[in-house]
């Protein structure tokens, strides 16, 4: 899944991403505030989307599942 690959390749968290559950809290796993910005920019580029201001919050990037939901919503909204 592309989201996991992006988290891994951009070193968003200091632990191997393949051991992270979909619902696990990425902030608890050591994702810094700035890393979440890097992830946001990487997701926007990879999926050709732009997160609206209403989505620029801690919850959106909290877990792989929450990111997946937001990205899916934006990708389907675009189509």
């Amino acid at each position: 899944m592309q989201i996991r690959e992006l988290i891994g390749s951009h070193k968003i968290i200091p632990v191997p991403v393949d051991r992270v559950g979909d619902e696990e809290d990425l902030y608890d796993l050591g994702m810094t505030s700035f890393a979440s910005v890097q992830l946001m920019l990487a997701l926007e580029e990879a999926f050709d989307i732009e997160f609206p201001e209403s989505m620029l919050n801690r919850k959106t990037f909290q877990s792989i599942a929450s990111i997946d939901r937001s990205v899916s919503e934006l990708v389907s909204g675009r189509a």
Partner: peptide, 14 residues
């Protein structure tokens, strides 16, 4: 920047 908005919200939430 836009990423800054996310950082600002994080800072406020916490």
């Amino acid at each position: 920047g836009r990423g800054g908005k996310l950082m600002a919200r994080n800072q406020r939430d916490q």
